[in-house]
Structure formats: C-alpha cells, structure tokens
C-alpha cells in the first residue's frame, strides 16, 4: 500500500516488498500455522482518517490493520457496509507470510473467523457417527 491520495509529494520509498492489495491480498486463501484453511480474504481494513474527513498535510499514510471476513463479503458484492461490530477481523500482526496464500502465525482454533466452522462441527458433524473418524 503506497498511495497517500492526491498529495503532491511523491510517495516515500518503503523498505521491503510492495504488495498490491487487489493482486496479492484480496480473495486469497488464508491458512493457519498448521496449513488448515481458515477463510478467504473478503476485504481489508485500513487505519486512517474517516471517509469524509478532510485530509491534512502531514497525516500519516493509512496502514493495513486487519483482514476482514464474514458478512462483509455479501456487502462487498451487493453494496452497503456492515456495522463495524459485525466485521470479523484477523489482525494483520497475525499474518506471517504472504505468497499465493496468506499464512497466519497462529492457530485457527481461537480465531473469530472460525466460529461458524466450529459451531457446525460441534453441533452437527461431530455428532454424526464416524464424524471424527480418520479417513486414512
């Protein structure tokens, strides 16, 4: 993320890799530290001034704060925006590696993003005989 809007000063050169949000982050698969799929990146959350606020010179460039998932996918496709409380966040600090997939440095078990999976597992799938049977 290098853009800082319509400022006249050219964007400062940043150390490290440049990631294109659309090309390298959006709609990518997210795996946890064991390689288990957690979700897909449905949207991104940036820090910075509110949408309508005037941007003053010297305001720091927005920073990527979290990967978003959950209902935000529906609103991204059909319009609107869910209230902030309904966003399911995966903090950017948890992201360990960005490649063709995003790898987290933490286990998916405790993430908010996995609650539907855990609910279906505990309430339905694990209760069917053989649900915890290893197929191998």
């Amino acid at each position: 993320m290098t853009s800082s809007g319509d400022s006249l000063v050219p964007a400062p050169r940043l150390a490290g890799r440049t990631l294109d949000a659309q090309l390298h982050l959006m709609d990518r698969q997210v795996l946890d530290h064991d390689g288990v799929p957690v979700t897909t990146v449905d949207d991104l959350e940036l820090s910075g001034p509110a949408l309508e606020a005037e941007i003053r010179p010297g305001t720091p460039a927005p920073v990527l704060t979290a990967l978003l998932t959950g209902p935000v996918l529906g609103t991204r496709i059909f319009g609107g925006r869910p209230p902030s409380s309904r966003l399911i966040r995966i903090p950017w600090e948890d992201v360990a590696e960005v490649d063709v997939v995003l790898k987290l440095g933490v286990s998916g078990e405790r993430l908010d993003a996995g609650w539907v999976e855990r609910w279906i597992r505990d309430k339905i799938i694990a209760r069917i005989p053989g649900g915890r049977h290893d197929p191998r």
């Binding site: 288990v36 799929p37 957690v38 979700t39 897909t40 998932t69 597992r121 915890r132 049977h133 197929p135």
Partner: peptide
C-alpha cells in the same frame, strides 16, 4: 463452495475437520 469461501475441505481430513464442507 469450500474453495470459493475458503473453508477447510478435503476427504483427507476427518469430517469434523472440514465441517462446512461435509455439511
């Protein structure tokens, strides 16, 4: 479905480890 939404999938996992996929 699982690949679009990024769910855990696959027959190599226990059904409980790919719950939405099996459901």
């Amino acid at each position: 479905l699982a690949q679009y939404f990024g769910w855990s999938w696959g027959k190599f996992r226990r059904p409980a480890e790919a719950a939405r996929f099996h459901l």
